[in-house]
C-alpha cells in the first residue's frame, strides 16, 4: 500500500516539477509589458523590448490605407505622443480619438513599429452609450 503511495507521490512530484518548469518557460517567452504611452516614453528601460502600449489615436496625422494593410497614426498619452507605424489588417473599430492597444517595438528612428493593433471595443456587456443613459436617468 505504502509502495503505491510512494510511487504516486514520486509521479506527482515529477509532474508538478515539469509543469513548474513549463510555466516558468512559458512566462519568460510570453512576457509582455503593459504600458501607457507616457510611462513608455519616460522610462527608457522599456524602449528596446517588445511591449504592449495603451493610448488614444490622435485626431491628426492619420494615414490609413486599408488596401495596403497599413495604418500610420500618432498614439497619444496624457502629455506625450509617439508615431506608430502599423502593418496588418486595420480593425473595423479603429477611429480617431479611439482607445487602442498596439504591440511591437520602437525602431531607431523613434517610430513604434506595431504588428498588432487592437481597439478596446465597446464591451459585450456594457456599452458606453448605455452608461450615459443610465446617468441621465438618475
Amino acid at each position: 500500500m505504502t509502495h503505491v503511495r510512494m510511487k504516486m507521490l514520486v509521479a506527482g512530484l515529477v509532474l508538478i516539477a515539469s509543469v513548474g518548469y513549463l510555466a516558468v518557460a512559458g512566462v519568460k517567452s510570453g512576457w509582455v509589458y503593459y504600458l501607457h504611452v507616457d510611462d513608455f516614453v519616460q522610462d527608457s528601460s522599456y524602449q528596446d523590448r517588445r511591449v504592449r502600449l495603451f493610448g488614444l489615436v490622435a485626431n491628426e496625422n492619420i494615414e490609413v490605407a486599408p488596401e495596403l494593410l497599413t495604418a500610420k497614426f500618432d498614439l497619444r498619452g496624457e502629455s506625450i505622443s509617439i508615431p506608430v507605424n502599423y502593418k496588418g489588417v486595420v480593425p473595423d473599430t479603429f477611429k480617431p480619438g479611439g482607445e487602442v492597444m498596439v504591440e511591437g517595438k520602437l525602431d531607431e528612428a523613434g517610430v513604434f513599429q506595431a504588428d498588432t493593433l487592437m481597439t478596446k471595443c465597446a464591451s459585450k456587456y456594457q456599452s458606453e452609450e448605455h452608461a450615459k443613459r443610465l446617468e441621465e436617468a438618475q
Binding site: V19, L22, A23, A25, G26, V27, S29, G30, W31, V32, Y33, Y34, L35, D39, Y46, R52
Partner: peptide, 18 residues
C-alpha cells in the same frame, strides 16, 4: 511597477503539453 501579461505563448507552452 508595471503589470505584465503573458500572451498565448504561455498557454501554448503549459496548457497544451498538459
Amino acid at each position: 511597477p508595471q503589470p505584465v501579461t503573458v500572451g498565448e505563448e504561455f498557454y501554448n507552452k503549459v496548457v497544451i503539453p498538459l
